[in-house]
């Protein structure tokens, strides 16, 4: 018993001494895009931890101990919300013992609350699949949403770290300026995509389709979150005759099987979009994320 007390005491001491004192605002982003946005706005005044990387489905990860340890030290959690992280974030927040980042505190920000959500289900019934009551959470595929989320994020950073208020405001307007002109450029490059019919593997792209004017004509998943079935794929294939889609798109973290299967049989390109920062090696930051998204779509449309 005595030795075990000693063991625990030494563990506590080690834990205390390995804590480094940081002046930066520690940001815990559930997905890389909000991490990248926080970095764009906060620059060297923030340290960012991303709970997921570009090849992870943020809906399906576990509430890992490492995430709890990171949340324990965070000053600001930036989540997507709209139930995207519902399977793990509530546990991580509760288990962290960190009062600053709980729901309703300045240290908890939901991006989906800043924008208008699409596909808000008229009927809440899981017979329709894994639908999200608040609406489709994949808001990060429309670059215009970053302006609203960024504005809120800058406000929160200023609230948490008032000494650097001006820095965050300036960081945001600098980003917003560059971002707006980039949006103009992407829209010009993607002008030819307007009205192009596309199939999606998962209903992850309503915001992208709305932005670029792509016409979503179907989803390989018959119901959201339920893996594509052969019969549904065959049905979509039969529809290609009358209402042909020009490409089938998926997020990089989704299995490529269903869209490859369809692409081979229908003779249309299968396009893997980075979906978030780090989804493909070239999508290293927010700007290159959309550079590559637009580029891949335009190439597939040729």
């Amino acid at each position: 018993m005595k030795s075990s007390i000693l063991m625990i005491a030494s563990a506590v001491l080690t834990a205390l001494f390995s804590t480094t004192l940081r002046a930066d605002v520690a940001v815990f982003a559930t997905v890389p895009e909000w991490g990248a946005l926080a970095k764009e706005i906060g620059g060297d005044k923030v340290t960012v931890y991303n709970a997921t990387h570009g090849l992870q489905d943020p809906h399906r990860i576990d509430a890992r101990p490492s995430l709890i340890a990171q949340a324990r030290r965070a000053q600001l959690v930036v989540a997507t919300g709209a139930e995207l992280e519902v399977g793990w974030l509530p546990v991580v927040l509760r288990e962290s013992g960190n009062g600053r980042i709980q729901l309703g505190q300045p240290g908890y920000l939901e991006a989906a609350r800043q924008v208008v959500l699409r596909e808000v289900p008229p009927v809440l019934d899981r017979a329709h699949g894994d639908i999200h009551a608040a609406g489709n959470p994949h808001i990060q595929t429309d670059p215009r949403n970053y302006l609203k989320v960024g504005e809120a994020l800058a406000g929160r950073l200023a609230e948490i770290d008032p000494a650097n208020q001006a820095h965050y405001r300036a960081g945001y307007s600098n980003f917003a300026g560059r971002w707006r002109s980039a949006i103009g450029r992407w829209e010009r490059e993607a002008a030819g995509l307007r009205g192009v019919p596309v199939l999606v593997q998962h209903q992850a792209f309503p915001y992208l389709c709305d932005w670029l004017g792509l016409k979503e004509v179907g989803s390989l998943e018959a119901k959201p979150g339920v893996e594509p079935t052969r019969s549904h794929l065959a049905e979509l294939l039969a529809r290609q005759g009358g209402q042909p889609a020009k490409m089938v798109i998926r997020a990089a973290y989704q299995a490529d099987g269903p869209s490859r299967w369809f692409s081979q049989r229908a003779g249309i390109p299968a396009v893997a979009l980075p979906f978030t920062v780090g989804g493909t090696p070239a999508a290293g930051d927010l700007f290159s994320l959309f550079d590559q998204t637009v580029q891949r779509l335009v190439e597939a449309n040729r």
Binding site: A11, V12, A15
Partner: peptide, 13 residues
């Protein structure tokens, strides 16, 4: 009662 240490490695007592 429990306590999570402010460390990178998760430690909870």
């Amino acid at each position: 009662f429990k306590w999570v240490a402010p460390t990178e490695t998760f430690l909870e007592l």
